[in-house]
């Protein structure tokens, strides 16, 4: 019997000799490619400063990750450079206001990179979305630096002043006056890249084609937002219970971006259907409730972070439930 056991041990040393082309760099590359439309939107509407801001975020995020990895002594050993830093940096840039100064961007990048990513154990181990965390950090700590979006932001393609000085004008607008064409094309003051719902959806479509997105949470997010929007209206405005401003909210508040790039994320969201669905629902509910009380960017991103935190627990819980039957039987057998 002992020989048989040894034999068995040998026998199971199997390995697949083919590997999916969808490796981690590929997934992040897909994510970056999916954000290309948003980046083009940013470059078209905000010009050179948008390009500089995006490149700056990408480069600093990558450098910060590399540096910290080096300091922490995790690096080396032939591990591939996985582009997650670049994709996080890009995502962060896209949710910043167009006239963010480089200093503000750097603050967000460092927070996202060091606190949310590296302290938790490096690439892939982050519990929360680094981009969302960095963005939320600056809007909580330096609210005046990212106080909103400048109306009529098209100040010229070669205007670079705001990169150094930031912008003084900027507020969170009420987009209910915007016409549908403006909303759908992103022709309104909004964040650098997340404003254009068309571009975000295009990126989302690309992700779906490439299979680098998990749709449970985004779908439940949208469904919940839709179902409970009147309640949120009641909460936010006190009077109206209805779908006033629903389209404006859906298209202008960045929920599409959040759904596609943050809730569809493979890393920070639950992998199981039930958990993912639940997470999307919770995220939507929190957004709808917080909308009435805090700044729109906080209302948008804080729920994402909370469900990111939750997702680990949620995933574990769902797994336990799904395996409970089997385990009890195993116990019986023993």
């Amino acid at each position: 019997m002992s020989r048989k056991r040894a034999v068995k041990k040998e026998a199971v040393r199997l390995a697949p000799f083919i590997h999916t082309e969808k490796n981690a760099p590929y997934i992040y590359l897909t994510l970056i490619a999916a954000m290309v439309p948003c980046s083009i939107y940013a470059a078209f509407y905000y010009g050179l400063r948008a390009i500089i801001l995006i490149l700056f975020c990408v480069v600093t995020f990558t450098l910060s990750d590399l540096l910290f990895t080096h300091i922490a002594g995790r690096g080396g050993k032939g591990e591939y450079f996985d582009l997650s830093s670049a994709s996080s940096g890009l995502m962060l840039a896209l949710i910043l206001p167009p006239d963010t100064s480089l200093i503000t961007a750097l603050t967000a990048v460092l927070f996202g990179s060091i606190v949310t990513k590296q302290i938790f154990g490096g690439p892939g181990s982050n519990l929360v979305n680094p981009a969302a965390a960095g963005r939320l950090f600056v809007s909580l700590v330096m609210p005046s630096a990212v106080k909103g979006y400048a109306e009529g932001g098209t100040e010229g393609w070669f205007m670079l002043r705001t990169l150094i000085f930031g912008s003084k004008s900027g507020e969170f607008h009420d987009y209910t006056n915007c016409s549908f064409p403006e909303l759908i094309t992103g022709n309104f003051p909004g964040s650098l890249g997340a404003a254009c719902a068309t571009c975000v959806l295009l990126g989302g479509f690309f992700l779906v084609m490439r299979g680098s997105i998990r749709l449970y949470a985004p779908i439940s997010y949208f469904v919940t937002l839709t179902l409970f929007f009147p309640l949120s209206n009641l909460l936010a405005r006190g009077t109206s219970f209805g779908y006033d401003g629903y389209i404006a909210f859906m298209l202008s508040s960045g929920v599409v971006f959040v759904a596609v790039f943050m809730l569809g994320d493979l890393t920070t969201m639950p992998s199981r259907f039930t958990a993912g669905f639940f997470a999307g629902m919770v995220c939507a509910m929190l957004t709808l409730i917080m909308r009435a009380f805090v700044r729109p960017d906080t209302a948008l991103l804080a729920p994402v972070l909370s469900v990111n935190f939750m997702s680990f627990v949620l995933d574990f819980l769902m797994k336990t439930i799904s395996r409970r039957n089997l385990r009890s039987r195993e116990v019986d057998v023993r």
Binding site: F17, I18, H19, K22, N23, A24, P25, I27, G78, E79, Y80, D82, S84, G121, G122, P123, G124, S125, R214, L266, T267, T268, P270, S271, R272, D315, K319, S322, R323
Partner: peptide, 25 residues
């Protein structure tokens, strides 16, 4: 006869794809 592939080795990114495809759940 399988072409030799270099599989990029990165830390686990907790994507959950393995749980998604595991036929045994």
């Amino acid at each position: 006869i399988i072409r030799r592939q270099v599989v990029p080795r990165t830390p686990c990114i907790h994507c959950g794809l393995c749980s998604e495809c595991c036929p045994m759940g």
